[in-house]
Nucleic acid binder design. Structure first.
Length: 655
RNA sequence: GGGCCGGUAGUCGAGCCAGGACCAAGACGGCGGCCUGCGGAGCCGCAAAUCGUGGGUUCGAAUCCCACCCGGCCCGCCA
């Protein structure tokens, strides 16, 4: 029996990583010996990165491709070099986790792991460390702020925060409340016209409705006025036709809204008609709010609070949590924005254009050689950024710069989980920070872009009242999950069925989004997003449920000290997957890549199902083997739970 | 017009940054097997891919470079 090193408490162990480290060190030793004999033939090489995963197990568990690099220098066949390296490796004495080393065509050096030792190491680690297994801590913990908002962005943002937290960073998630923009002002305006009623139903939906109607009516009004003006000024027919066409579109939108929400539509139309200039009234609200005029301040804050309560309820359903809610208005009221503006003017890179201030971001980039520093291509076009309106009020990007600086007061690193369409704006924020002297901050500012998500071709949020809400998605998922549960597990009590369906539906949605690279735009159809056959969330959960089923059937069992009987291929494949969790986790954290964990979770579940089919447990006569297999089941459950928690999925115990 | 991002089987998608055993993972759909022993939301097998197109670099390209095509997005005193 191989001796097993003690597992340190509080420092998660990394079985496969140990194997890798041993391969690396053996390779290094052998290589430096070869270097001594002939320096020219064996130049300095990055040995660690030459180790890769072989395509299948016949080739061992890690392989080095360094012979290929060397063959370039030596003008020798890779296979010849590989044999030479293997020969040299053969001289090494200490082989803890390495079973064998072989040269293989066309020139790989293949390392095979000592499975018995790896098994022991892995199961000991998991069973001792429990839920902290695999969560390898970073050597450089940072204070990280992850900003994100809703739906797909939030699912990624929340997951990144979980992963970075597991990695040992001090992570805070922030929700940026955009309360000084036009949208909230329009809501508040419409709400006031309605007489400020108590919202019926979910407040964010209620205000969404008001916003759609109000903004449409304002748009209609503005377009009509513009058309009248065009006719008066003898504008070209082309302009008039274009204007008329746009007006027609808004008439269509209005008609849709009228049929959807007849009561509110009627009241708002009637009352707005008494306002000679609705747009002006809304602008007035924005101005007053920026100045924190008490009545407006109270109105807009009240409206925002109600909407946020609705958001929070929805997000909570999807297991999304926020540590802090930041008001954009606070950036104005505390003087941060005006101070920022003054400092930007002092840089000499901002100029006044008809009363509005404009930042020449392109010049800023060129003057400071920022292309290279910020990783932009030579051709990347960085356009100017308008900082203020001519009436002096600020624009969203300006406030966002101030907000970014605010976040950096509390964090070393800021990750903004925001749509790809904001790439330019996010870059301009970085440029602004740089020219103000916040260079380190500009470097540690990361835009994590999210590709557009549409459902059946509709956006998750949009003007014109044509959109699918996150709630609708969650509701539909719950409904479908409930049907599946009814179909497959009709014997469960009602309450359990509900809880199971709830967990499965959220997990399915999160998994469906997280398993596709974040920047990719996706059009989900209901069937695709919520197909519980295709979706891996139930597949993963089922592995967990099956495991629990076995353990429950066995009752309490003594944990074995050794795991020398787990020698079936399906068992070893499962163990190898478990051994690789720490590396996979660390990589997903370093690369900010949740998709990696999705693939891992699916792979682990797959290997468990395979093991389940092939290895009996409860009917075994061999008590020792039974205990060892039960421990493997237990260990798999621990890792499945850990990885799914990182993804924000919730595993149902029965399903 | 300029720019950014994406383009991998019928469909969805991993691999691309760090080029090597890629005759390309996985899934849905299709076809065919497996329930008198732990829950079949499972297991096993088969068919299906000009890796957008054309050049280049390299011993070697899905991966790097160039050009082009297609799709999405951005270039606002909107957010």
């Amino acid at each position: 029996m191989t001796s097993v090193p003690m597992v340190g408490k509080g420092s998660p162990s990394d079985p496969f990583g140990q194997f890798r480290a041993e391969c690396e060190s053996l390779l290094r030793g052998a290589y430096s010996n070869l270097q001594k004999s002939d320096k020219k033939r064996f130049p300095e090489l990055d040995l660690a990165s030459s180790l890769e995963d072989p395509p299948n197990q016949e080739f061992g568990h890690l392989a080095s491709s360094l012979s290929f690099e060397l063959s370039r220098v030596q003008k020798t066949k890779p296979m010849t070099i590989a044999k030479e390296i293997v020969h040299e490796l053969g001289k090494a004495r200490v082989h803890h986790l390495v079973e064998s080393v072989q040269a293989a065509e066309p020139g790989y050096v293949n390392f095979k792991a000592k499975i018995e030792t790896l098994t022991q190491l892995t199961l000991d680690a998991i069973l001792h460390e429990g839920s902290s297994y695999g969560l390898l801590k970073t050597g450089q913990p940072q204070r990280v702020i992850v900003e994100h908002t809703s739906a797909k962005n939030s699912i990624f943002g929340d997951t990144l925060a979980r992963i970075l937290g597991g990695r040992g960073h001090a992570v805070k998630t922030h929700f940026y409340i955009d309360d000084t923009g036009r949208q909230v002002a329009q809501m508040a305006y419409g709400y006031k016209l309605l007489g400020e009623p108590t919202p019926e139903g979910k407040p964010d939906e209620f205000f969404g409705k008001i916003y759609s109607i109000t903004s449409t009516l304002v748009e209609l009004d503005e377009n009509k006025k513009r058309l009248v003006l065009l006719r008066k000024t003898n504008a070209s027919d082309i302009d008039i036709v274009a204007m008329t066409k746009e007006l027609d579109e808004w008439v269509g939108v209005a008609a849709e809204l009228q049929s959807k929400y007849p009561a509110e539509f009627e009241v708002l139309t009637e009352r707005m008609s008494k306002d000679p200039d609705p747009q002006g009234s809304i602008n007035e609200l924005i101005r007053k709010y920026e100045k924190a005029e008490p009545v407006t301040r109270s109105l807009i804050r009240r409206v925002s609070q109600m909407v946020l309560a609705g958001f929070e309820e929805t997000l909570r359903r999807a297991h999304i949590h926020f540590d802090q809610w930041d008001w954009e208005s606070d950036m104005l009221w505390t003087g941060r924005v005006s101070e920022l503006l003054d400092r930007l003017k002092e840089t000499g890179l901002a100029h006044s254009k008809g009363g509005a201030w404009v930042l020449d971001a392109g010049k800023a980039v060129d003057d400071n050689a920022l292309r290279e520093k910020l990783g932009l291509s030579k051709s990347f076009e960085v356009t100017s950024l308008t900082l203020t309106r001519s009436d002096g009020t600020t624009l969203y990007p300006t406030r966002d710069i101030a907000y970014s600086l605010y976040k950096f007061e509390k964090a070393d690193r800021v990750i903004n989980v925001i749509g790809v369409e904001q790439s330019l704006a996010q870059l301009q924020v970085r440029v602004a920070m740089w020219i103000l002297g916040y260079r380190k901050q500009a470097m540690n500012f990361l835009h994590f872009p999210i590709g557009l998500l549409t459902l059946e071709g509709q956006r998750m949020s949009a003007r014109r009242g044509r959109y699918v809400t996150f709630d609708q998605l969650l509701d539909e998922a719950l409904l479908r999950a409930r049907q599946e549960v009814d179909k497959r597990s009709s014997e469960l009590p009602e309450e359990v069925k509900y809880r199971v369906a709830e967990s499965l539906s959220i997990s399915a949605i999160r998994y469906a989004m997280l398993s596709v690279e974040a920047v990719k735009s996706t059009n989900f159809t209901w069937d695709r997003a919520l197909n519980f056959e295709a979706n891996s969330a139930p597949f993963i959960n089922y592995a967990y449920t099956r495991g629990l089923g076995i353990l429950k059937k066995l009752g309490s069992h003594e944990r074995p000290s050794y795991f020398n009987k787990l020698i079936e291929p399906a068992e070893q494949n499962l163990i190898l997957a478990l051994a690789r969790f720490p590396e996979t986790f660390a990589r997903s954290a370093e690369e900010l890549d949740p998709t990696l964990l999705c693939l891992y979770a699916n792979d682990l579940a797959q290997r468990f199902h395979e093991f389940y089919e092939k290895s009996d447990i409860s009917h075994l006569k061999d008590e020792e083997l039974k205990r060892q297999r039960a421990s493997l089941v237990e260990a798999t459950g621990i890792v499945l739970k850990c990885v799914t928690e990182l993804l924000g999925m919730k595993l149902a115990e029965r399903m």
